[in-house]
Every structure is written in structure tokens, then in C-alpha cells.
Measured scan of single mutants.
Amino acid sequence: VTLFVALYDYEARTEDDLSFHKGEKFQILNSSEGDWWEARSLTTGETGYIPSNYVAPV
């Protein structure tokens, strides 16, 4: 499993987005949709879409 870490804070803009804080780690569930990836936060357990340019591989 490839994990990603948040480089910046992000505040959700829609109900499908996932808010997160810098340093939070994610498991990517689906990265085939372009710039927005479906991810699960390893901190909160919540699932939603995150901007791929806000995260980097651990």
C-alpha cells in the first residue's frame, strides 16, 4: 500500500471533499479520476476526495 502525506492544510469545498491538516497520512483508494483522488485518512478514518497536488508519497 502506497501512503501519501499532506503537504498543506486543506478545507473541504464540497461534501465529497475531505478536509485535512499538514502531516496527515492517507491511503489512496482511487487515483484514476485526474487531479482529485479518493482517499482514506489514516488519522480520522474518513473517506473523500483530496487534491493530488496537496500530497506526496511517504
Rank of each mutant, 00 (worst) to 15 (best):
F4Y: 15
H21T: 14
K25P: 05
V5I: 13
Y49E: 03
S31Y: 09
L3N: 06
L3K: 05
R40P: 00
G34A: 11
P51I: 03
A12T: 05
K22G: 04
F4G: 04
N53H: 13
D9Y: 04
K22D: 02
A39G: 06
T44P: 00
D9M: 04
A6E: 00
S31P: 12
R40S: 07
L7F: 03
S52E: 04
V5Y: 13
P57F: 07
S32H: 12
N53I: 10
E46W: 09
G48I: 02
I28Y: 03
G23T: 02
L42S: 05
L42R: 03
G45S: 06
L42C: 07
L29F: 08
E24G: 02
S41H: 08
I50W: 00
Y8M: 10
V1I: 15
F26M: 07
H21C: 08
G23S: 04
S19Y: 03
V55R: 00
E38L: 15
R13G: 09
Y54C: 05
T43R: 15
A39S: 03
V5T: 06
E24K: 01
W36V: 09
D35T: 15
V5C: 05
L29H: 05
K25V: 13
E38T: 11
G34H: 10
R13I: 12
G23R: 02
K25R: 14
T43I: 10
A56K: 14
K25C: 07
G45L: 08
L29N: 05
F4E: 01
W36Y: 13
S31H: 12
E33K: 14
N30T: 09
K22I: 09
D17H: 15
E38Q: 14
E33W: 11
D35H: 12
T14C: 09
A39R: 00
P51H: 09
F4L: 04
G48H: 03
I50S: 00
G34N: 12
T47I: 14
E24L: 01
T14G: 15
T44C: 02
N30C: 07
L29A: 06
L3F: 09
E46N: 13
T14M: 15
A12C: 05
E11Q: 11
K22S: 08
G34E: 13
F4C: 06
T14Y: 11
D16E: 15
L42D: 05
I50R: 00
S19P: 06
G23H: 05
D16T: 11
Y49S: 07
P51A: 04
E11L: 11
Y49P: 03
L7R: 04
F20R: 00
L18C: 02
E11K: 13
D9N: 09
S31E: 09
K22W: 05
L7K: 05
L18I: 10
V1Q: 13
D17F: 14
S19K: 04
T44L: 02
V58T: 08
D17E: 15
E15F: 12
G34S: 13
V5N: 03
T47M: 09
F26L: 09
Y54G: 06
R40C: 07
I28G: 01
K22N: 04
V58Q: 08
T14Q: 11
Y54L: 13
Y8Q: 09
A39E: 01
G23D: 06
Y8R: 10
L3A: 07
T2F: 10
G23K: 02
G23N: 06
T14E: 10
D9E: 07
E15P: 13
S32W: 12
G48E: 00
V55Q: 01
P51D: 06
T43F: 10
S31W: 11
